[in-house]
Amino acid sequence: MHLHTLNQSPAQSQVYRQALAAMADDDCLLLIEEAVQGALPHLIGPFEGLAGRLYVLEEDLVARGLLERCDDNARVVDVEGFVSLTEQADKVLSWY
């Protein structure tokens, strides 16, 4: 399994397309920084195919006041969960 991190909002940047193209079937995607917007119901569209493999960083949601608006299909993880994902992944790729 590879972990892919994305830090750009899908409402602002199309770099998520590259992350998705680069993801194998068992890879995980973690939304951080501005990309946490991608966990909102209105913006989660591009990531809908990632059931169970879409994660979002809690503290970046909280800082933006978005935690309560997060879609149920995104799994909220704290920074320990972020590190834990990098432990499980063979490689970590950053899309920005």
């Binding site: 830090n7 951080i32 920084e33 501005e34 503290e59 970046d60 920074v79 320990e80 972020f82 590190v83 990098t86």
Partner: peptide, 20 residues
């Protein structure tokens, strides 16, 4: 200028705290 440095420092402290 952007969040990268904050994210990196936070991640760095967490990996060390987890014993890595």
């Amino acid at each position: 200028s952007n969040q990268a440095a904050h994210s990196a420092l936070r991640f760095a402290r967490t990996i060390i705290a987890r014993g890595h």
